[in-house]
Design a protein around this nucleic acid. Structure first.
Lengths: 334, 334
DNA sequence: CTGAAAGCGCTTACAG
DNA sequence: CTGAAAGCGCTTACAG
């Protein structure tokens, strides 16, 4: 059986209240009692039950992260950013990802109830009402990269639209007039925004041109598959813009396999700037998503909302998405 | 204020015991009371406090994962494998990573105490004694890829030594007689085993040859840096074997930048078979680590240990590490 | 089948 | 400065 505060009190010859005060650093304990109690605590290797503590303080010092079914480096960067910020604040991280559908996400959300002091939510299945219906109303939550600006929760998002627009402009400036787009999953908010940015830029910068959208799903495999489709086209575009780096890299492999060289034969760009992107050949032109930073900022905001529930803002903040130009879109040698 | 079981009991006009029994699916409740109680539960949107439940049942239905400071796809694959298996068993996942040193790892370990029903441990800072000293003795734990076969905890590891050995054999069979090795962090168990496998194979298969070891740290950046060092060598090896894929990919980028073509000018191989490896150009020959599977298996074993504490085996299981041959080690055209 | 009561391991007014 | 006691929100013998 685990040792409890009662055991410590008994062995130390004091009350449990005194042990509790000592452990919690209250000032009203003699230096002498304090030292003695601490000695017994060490001797007995006593660790307070965090469950019992949570019960009484209504704080778990844990935050939950509801994440999409993400593979690859995007996911690890996000977790890393959250984890780092959480550790700095002494918070624990409960993660839940890989929800196939809304009911699974709902179950995950409900299961978080009571286990966490707050929630970080990035999920394609979650709408504002959905969130509202599945967590207790007073649980602080911060949204990441979702469409929800419900006025109730703070939210952060990368400027997906602006980033995609900037990328198309870059390609146009490089002389491209036929730019294909490999889209992400249709239900995904970020994918939609990036597609919208591509479309808007095309309309503005290449009026009269038509869009060429291939359907991907953010995986490398889909990038490779759609890459092959592009190659087979009779009217091949001169540039391909993939909605994320994973697809761009998959596409790159298909192009290489077909004997096409990037950027000589065709230009290629991605989105996110996952760490690997600078290490593929040629290094990938992309849009920096500041993934870890996004996670860290969201965590900070959530921590504030937990500490000062009244001050909690429901502001939406958009993070800049900067163009990162690398050789994959270098101008063809003239 | 959140609604409690008392509120439900009051509104339903029954005792809290009856509400509890209904919620926990006990048979000794009339179908009529049951329906009525469930109605009130829904009406009040009552969700039991998991904290209070944990307090009484001594189960948190949460497992903790202590992970190394890992970047990149290896980490996301591992988490994904663990998360999938955990979800299937109805377990939650508390993750803690990014510990710079042993004292941070110790703090993380102690913080897990009481919050989790069991522990999954993969950390370069953790030794058997260390683990023993920082968790309560009866907390089930399963170790992943560590040196600890302490006879107290179950453990899983990829056959790092065998995989590295097989890779060297493959390279030797391809005609290479000068094979450089980019090592991982010196303190890392897996890195050590892979290095040992390289050395053993060299001694067995290329007697009289000398080893060429460059010090990396498992990051892409270190692969790129050591790759540049190799290029500068007067006696350049004909093949480079990196202790993980991330470094191999970093190395590949350095080779490309220097105008060297893989595999024509130099062969290159990695270890882990992270998903991206098949999408770089040329696709990377590597050793499959079955990362997600490792995480899933460890979780399964941990779940068993939690459910049947007496049956808990302290067995060590080694997972096969298969060679995956791709174009990066294709024989030079003769 | 149902309820009153004890108890899980803590923290925190309230007295002294 | 210290202790006795109430209470956090549940579950589970024990009676009836």
């Amino acid at each position: 059986m685990a040792v409890t505060i009662k055991d410590v009190a008994r062995v130390a010859g004091v009350s449990v209240a005194t042990v509790s005060r000592t452990l919690n650093g209250h000032s009203n304990v003699t230096e002498q009692t304090r030292a003695h109690v601490l000695g017994v605590v060490a001797e007995l290797r006593f660790v307070p039950s965090s469950t019992a503590q949570s019960m009484i303080t209504r704080r778990t010092h844990t935050i939950g992260a509801l994440l999409p079914d993400l593979h690859g480096e995007y996911f690890s960067e996000l977790i890393r950013g959250i984890d780092l910020a959480a550790r700095a604040r002494g918070l624990h991280l409960l993660v839940s990802s890989s929800h196939g559908d809304a009911s699974e996400a709902a179950a995950a959300l409900r299961a978080m109830n009571g286990r966490v002091d707050g929630l970080l939510v990035m999920s394609p299945h979650v709408s504002a009402d959905f969130l509202w219906g599945n967590i207790s109303g007073d649980l602080p939550a911060v949204l990441m990269n979702t469409r929800l600006a419900d006025g109730r929760h703070a939210s952060f998002a990368v400027d997906n639209h602006g980033g995609a627009y900037a990328m198309v402009r870059h390609l146009v400036e490089r002389g491209h007039r036929s730019i294909a787009f490999i889209a992400g999953p249709e239900s995904n908010f970020e994918a939609q925004e990036r597609l919208a940015g591509y479309r808007a830029a095309l309309a503005d910068l290449l009026p009269g041109s038509y869009e060429q959208v291939l359907q991907g799903d953010f995986t490398q495999e889909s990038g490779s598959r759609t890459g092959s489709q592009v190659i087979a086209l009779t009217q091949r575009p001169t540039a391909i813009f993939a909605a994320n780096d994973a697809m761009a890299i998959g596409c790159l492999s298909a192009l290489n396999e077909a004997g096409l060289q990037v950027p000589r034969d065709i230009a290629l760009a991605g989105f996110d700037d996952i760490p690997i992107s600078r290490y593929v050949s040629p290094p990938l032109t992309t849009v920096r998503s500041r993934i870890a930073e996004l996670g860290g900022l969201a965590l900070e905001r959530l921590a504030s909302a937990i500490e000062e529930p009244n001050h909690a803002s429901a502001q939406h903040q958009t993070l800049r998405a900067d163009l990162v130009v690398r050789p994959s879109t270098a101008p063809p040698p003239t």
